[in-house]
Structures are given as structure tokens and as C-alpha cells.
């Protein structure tokens, strides 16, 4: 009995302490993660400067960054960045404008599910860039090709996550809507949609990463403009510093987009985060 009490006490004490130490460890690991990045960049810089790697195609990191600043400020890159972002926005927009309603329809309407599901399962494993060459036959080399590829890449994670989200809605929420005599449409809008939203947003986030990849790949394969096209042209022109500058730029764009998304997501479904923090599991 006393043993039990003692155990409970030590648990009660070690509980918060443990979480604090985990917190510290996480912060440390993040610091060491940043440290590793810095180290790698230093190694890059030194390997190029000391002549450890001797190649005209291996400029030091500082030169790449300087080139990036020049390329952006002299206006060469800016229109390309904008065209890439605009293309991404349209393709992604088409993808999720189709994906979310389609996901809801598949999850909620049995006939739609029976008809569409097998096709989705069949198309899903295709590596997205692989659809670009056949699409060239169908759509030519214009923007519609790129937009279709981006939309296609966006579609799958959005549809699949939306289905999972709708399926995971607590059955009791349906009954709540029913008992208060709420119409089917209102229940969809005010109950099913918000309940599924965390899943939908997770799908949209995955899709955003994929859409960036496909945008760049499409621009690389059939480009007239955009950062992906610029990247390949610089490689052909043997302008290594500009090429690396484009890569750094793309990394930055992808990173910022993801950050922005997470920020927006946290605002939209603030209640899930707060509820977890309040320790309510139900």
C-alpha cells in the first residue's frame, strides 16, 4: 500500500520533469540539426576554395549566394519565379478544386465510390513525372500540359485524405445532426466538413510538396519559362553558379510554402491543437 503511494508520488514528480527534459533534448537536437547544415555548407565552401574539389562546375557556396542575389536583384530571375509560382498556384488550385469534392462524393455516395474507386487505385501508383511524356502527345508542349500534370499530382493525396477524413467522422456526429433535424446539406457543411478538415488539410499539405516537384520537373522537361527551365538552361550553358543559385532558390520556395501552409493550417484548425494541449483525448 505504502509502496503504491510512493510509486504514485514518484510518477507524479517524474512526469513533468521527464517532459521538460524531452523538451530540452528536442531543442538541443534542433540546434545540432542546424549545426550540421552549417557544417555541410562550410565543407562546401572550403572544398571549393581550397581546391580540394577542382572543377569549374563547383563554385563555393558564397559565390552561389552572391550570384543568387545578383540574379534576383537584376530582374533576371524575378519573372521566372513569378511564372513558376503562378503555374503552381493554378495547377494546385485545379487539383484541389476537383479533389476535395471528389473525395467527399466518393466517401458519401456509394454509387460514386463503386465506380471511381478502382480507377483511383489503378492510377495512384503511377510515378507522376512518368505521365508527362504521354501527356505531351495529348496536350502538346503548352501550359495546359504542365497544369494537368500538377493538378494530377495534387489530386491523389487530396482525394485519398478527404475520403479517410470523411470515413473517420464520429458516427455520433451524424446522429447529433439528425436529432436536431438539420438538413443533409447543413450537416455536410457544419458537421462532416469541419470534422474531416484536419485530414483534408494534411492531404493538401502533402499535395503541395508534390505539386512543387512536378511543377519544376515539368518546366525542366518542356520549359519556355519558370525556374525549372532556367535551371536546365544554366546547366546547358555551363553556368554552374547560376544553376546552383536556382536550386537554392527552389529549396527556399518549397520551404517557405510549406511553412506558410503549416501556419495557415494551424489557424484554420486551431481547435485540434488547443484540444490536444488541454489533454482531452476523446
Amino acid at each position: 500500500m505504502t509502496q503504491l503511494v510512493a510509486d504514485n508520488e514518484t510518477q507524479g514528480l517524474s512526469g513533468p520533469k521527464r517532459s521538460v527534459s524531452i523538451g530540452v533534448r528536442v531543442r538541443n537536437s534542433r540546434a545540432s540539426g542546424v549545426l550540421l547544415v552549417v557544417l555541410i555548407l562550410c565543407a562546401w565552401e572550403l572544398s571549393a576554395r581550397t581546391g580540394f574539389v577542382q572543377s569549374t562546375n563547383w563554385p563555393p557556396f558564397s559565390t552561389v549566394m552572391a550570384t543568387l542575389v545578383v540574379d534576383v536583384t537584376d530582374g533576371e530571375l524575378l519573372p521566372l519565379i513569378l511564372s513558376t509560382l503562378w503555374r503552381l498556384a493554378r495547377g494546385y488550385g485545379i487539383g484541389f478544386a476537383i479533389g476535395i469534392p471528389l473525395g467527399f462524393a466518393i466517401a458519401l455516395l456509394r454509387p460514386v465510390r463503386l465506380v471511381v474507386r478502382p480507377t483511383i487505385e489503378l492510377l495512384r501508383p503511377i510515378p507522376i513525372p512518368a505521365i508527362i511524356p504521354p501527356l505531351i502527345f495529348l496536350l502538346g508542349l503548352g501550359d495546359s500540359l504542365k497544369l494537368s500534370s500538377i493538378a494530377f499530382a495534387t489530386l491523389f493525396p487530396v482525394v485519398l485524405n478527404t475520403i479517410a477524413g470523411v470515413m473517420a467522422v464520429e458516427p455520433i456526429y451524424d446522429q447529433v445532426a439528425k436529432t436536431f433535424g438539420v438538413s443533409r446539406w447543413t450537416a455536410l457543411r457544419r458537421v462532416v466538413f469541419p470534422a474531416a478538415l484536419p485530414f483534408v488539410l494534411a492531404g493538401l499539405r502533402t499535395a503541395l510538396g508534390l505539386a512543387v516537384v512536378v511543377t519544376v520537373v515539368a518546366e525542366m522537361i518542356v520549359g519556355q519559362d519558370g525556374v525549372g527551365y532556367y535551371l536546365v538552361s544554366m546547366q546547358f550553358a555551363m553556368r554552374a553558379a547560376d544553376m546552383y543559385a536556382a536550386i537554392v532558390l527552389l529549396t527556399l520556395i518549397a520551404y517557405l510554402l510549406n511553412r506558410a501552409f503549416i501556419l495557415a493550417e494551424g489557424r484554420i484548425i486551431r481547435w485540434t491543437r488547443l484540444r490536444e494541449a488541454s489533454g482531452d483525448a476523446s
Binding site: I172, Y173, T272
Partner: peptide
């Protein structure tokens, strides 16, 4: 179906409130 005038108070009250 969905009768007007009748309301059901659920056994799992915690789950029946909409958390958002």
C-alpha cells in the same frame, strides 16, 4: 426518419458536443 419535436440526449455527452 428525422422527427421534429423530439430530441435525443446522448449517452456519450462528451462526444456528442461538436469540438470545433
Amino acid at each position: 426518419g428525422e422527427p421534429a419535436h423530439m430530441v435525443y440526449l446522448f449517452q456519450q455527452y462528451g462526444k456528442s458536443l461538436l469540438p470545433w
